[in-house]
């Protein structure tokens, strides 16, 4: 279980997170929806201290972290128990697909070379990239790079995987393959996932919980059917209307 309580974050004088609290049960998928600039990316990045929050408490399983006063050791601990899938993939350009996945296993989890290889290949297989395991990122399409990015996160068996708009940098015809993989891992891997996305269909089909954010606060939380089909809040309705018109 991961639980965020009262996350605050400002950039200069603009407050981007104004007291965000969410709870994600173990093994469940939470989708965060919200208009541009509502603080979704900032929220994900504050969870793993890429953008440390000014205030807030996080509970990761049974450990409590004060986000504003975490020690270096605690930061490492949080990062070693979470993984992130980035909008721009951020694969290590000087490493093959396989090396990208092995990197964290060998260097962070101190796994033996052979064990790491087996595990990395297992997850590359899972995302359908085993036939490209010796390719460098430049030799892969965006969708393929993102699938490797997902394998890299999965292989670490983190307590929670954070996805920040994993398909929004992709050409439309490549979006499907990545969403398929994400659906598959949500089903098979029992991973706890927090997914920021504009793919309403994905939220409807896969999410256990949908959170609608706007202006740095959580506006509405609930089951996908409730939020997407008949939202209670006017702001949620307005946001979703833009998608149904398409």
């Amino acid at each position: 279980m991961i639980k965020l309580e009262n996350f605050h974050k400002s950039f200069g004088s603009t407050e981007v997170l104004k007291g965000v609290s969410i709870e994600v049960p173990t093994g469940s998928v939470t989708v965060i929806l919200g208009p541009s600039g509502s603080g979704k990316t900032t929220l994900l990045r504050s969870i793993n201290f890429l953008e440390p929050a000014d205030k807030g408490t996080m509970i990761l399983d049974d450990k409590v972290f004060d986000m504003a006063a975490a020690s270096k050791k605690e930061i490492l601990e949080v990062r070693r128990n979470t993984a992130m899938v980035f909008q721009n993939y951020n694969l290590f350009a000087n490493m093959t697909a396989l090396e990208n996945v092995k990197e964290g296993l060998v260097l962070v989890q101190k796994m033996g070379r052979y064990e790491a290889l087996i595990k990395a290949e297992y997850y590359l297989e899972k995302v359908g990239m085993i036939n490209r395991e010796h390719f460098y990122p430049v030799q892969l399409s965006g969708g393929q790079q993102q699938r490797v990015g997902i394998a890299r996160a999965l292989a670490l068996n983190p307590k929670v995987i954070l996805f920040d708009e994993p398909t929004s940098a992709l050409d439309p015809e490549l979006v499907g393959e990545v969403l398929e993989i994400m659906k598959k891992i949500a089903k098979e891997e029992n991973s706890t996932m927090i997914v920021v996305t504009h793919e309403i269909g994905f939220a409807r089909d896969v999410a256990d919980q949908v959170i609608f954010m706007e202006g740095g606060v959580v506006v509405e939380t609930g089951e996908p059917r409730d939020i997407i089909e008949n939202p209670k809040e006017e702001r949620t309705r307005k946001f979703l209307a833009r998608f149904s018109n398409r």
Partner: peptide, 28 residues
């Protein structure tokens, strides 16, 4: 010339800054 996203990717899985620098950034 090396995008900072790669450093963030290393940090996000719990690598230290030095590991990220010498393994990913410097070779590129």
């Amino acid at each position: 010339s090396v995008n900072v996203g790669q450093t963030e990717a290393e940090l996000s899985i719990g690598m230290t800054w030095n590991q990220a620098f010498f393994r990913i950034i410097l070779p590129q």
